[in-house]
Computed example of a mutant assay.
Amino acid sequence: MSRKRWHIDVQEGCYTLARHWPPRFDVEARAVFPAARPGRLAQQIRQDLWRKFQHLRGFSPVIQISEQTGADGLIVRAGGRVMRPLPAETANRITALLENPAHRARWISWAQERRT
């Protein structure tokens, strides 16, 4: 049985998680998050993004997390590749997911830097 693999690209200040490579944003939304571990944050957002859009045939999630220039935070770019026409409200639904207080609290809690 083959295992589905995710592509991860880590560059200085930028973390990208995508199902297909190269990543492509046919639809996207952005949001600002506090400092956190990018890999953990990306995984959590990807899971909820997939749950919300799994019915959208041909959808392949992409999450890109960049350090915010001159600030202590992250810019999250979420969306992905779509092989079929998109419903008009798709980008707004991604924005609503990224701005949902309950989701944000769970994602941030999971991805916060642990200090010992």
Rank of each mutant, 00 (worst) to 15 (best):
R19S: 00
M1D: 10
W50I: 01
A91K: 06
A105R: 14
R37I: 00
W21L: 13
W6Q: 02
N92P: 00
W6R: 01
L41Q: 02
S60F: 15
M1E: 14
I108Q: 14
L98A: 02
I65D: 09
D9R: 05
F53R: 13
I108W: 15
R106W: 15
L56P: 09
G70L: 07
A111D: 12
L97A: 04
A36Y: 08
H103A: 09
P34Y: 03
Q54S: 05
R114L: 04
H55D: 06
G39E: 13
A42R: 01
C14R: 14
R77V: 08
A31M: 11
K4F: 13
Q64M: 15
S66T: 12
K52T: 11
T95W: 15
I65P: 06
R84E: 07
V62D: 07
D9Y: 11
E67H: 09
Q68W: 08
L17A: 01
R104Y: 12
C14A: 01
Q43R: 09
L49F: 10
L56E: 08
Q44C: 10
I75L: 11
A31E: 15
E28V: 03
I45Y: 09
V10F: 03
S109T: 09
R77F: 02
K4E: 10
A36K: 01
T90H: 08
S60T: 09
V76W: 11
R104L: 03
P23A: 14
F53A: 03
A105H: 14
